[in-house]
Amino acid sequence: MSEAAVEKALDQKMNTVPFKMVGRDVSVYYGEKRALFDVNLDVRENTVTALIGPSGCGKSTFLRTLNRMNDTIENCRVTGKITLDEDDIYDLSIDVVELRARVGMVFQKPNPFPKSIYDNVSYGPRIHGLARTKAELDAVVETSLQKAGLWNEVKDRLHEPGTGLSGGQQQRLCIARAVAVSPEVILMDEPCSALDPIATAKVEELIHELRANFTIVIVTHSMQQAARVSQRTAMFHLGNLVEENDTDKMFTNPDDQRTQDYIMGRFG
C-alpha cells in the first residue's frame, strides 16, 4: 500500500480508530498549586494529536503525565487515571522505566548526549537489550536514522559527536534516538520551537511519516503547525481541557468560543 493510501485509509477510519491512551479526571499539583483540572482526553492509535493553548495552560504538564516524566519533578502530584492499552500507568505494578520505553519523548530543545551519533541512537537499544549482536545494533541504528530522515546526512560520520550537528539535525537525531527503542507512543514537547523554518518543515514532514508506525502526541505553540501535522487537536486553557476535536473541524468551526478566540488570535 502506498503512503498516501495508508494516510487516506487512516483518515477515513478516524472515528473508529481504537484509543491508545486514555486520561480520566487527570489533575496535577505542583506543591499547593493545581496545574491541571480533571482533564479527560483520549489519544487514538496511529494518530497525531496536537495539544494547543496559551503559555502556562497545562498542555506540557499533561504531556509529561503520559510517560510519568513529572515523577522527576519535586513536589509534583498526579491524580486521576491514565491508561496505556488499558493498563493504568500510575499503578504500583507498572515499572516506570518500562513505561518510558513504551512511551518515548522528544524535548523542546534538542538534547543529544555528548557522544557520537551512533552512540546516541544505540543508547536506548543497548539499555533495553534490544539487539544481541553488533550487526543487529547497526541495523537498529540505521533503520532509526532512516525513519528520522537523517541517514543520508550522517551515514558517513556516525562516529562524530552528535552535538556537532545543526539544530534541526540534532532534533531529528533525538527523534531517531526515541524511535530506536521502538516505542508505541512518541510524545513531542514543542519539538520545533528551537528550529528555523526549513528544519521545522523537515521535522513536520517526519512527524507525518512516523504516524504510520507510532501514536504521536505533540505540544505546539504554532496553530499552523497543529493544523498541518495533526488529525486531532485538543485545546487547553488555564489548566482545563476546553475542547477536543478533529483538527479540520477545530480550525474551521470550533464548538467552543474560547477555541475560536484563541485560533483567531484574540488572546494567548
Binding site: 522505566v97 518515548g104 543508547y123
Partner: peptide, 17 residues
Amino acid sequence: PRALRDGSLGLGATRSE
C-alpha cells in the same frame, strides 16, 4: 544540563544508568 537527564530518563533509562 537537566535536558540530558530528561533525555536519558525519557528513553526509559534508570537513574543509575
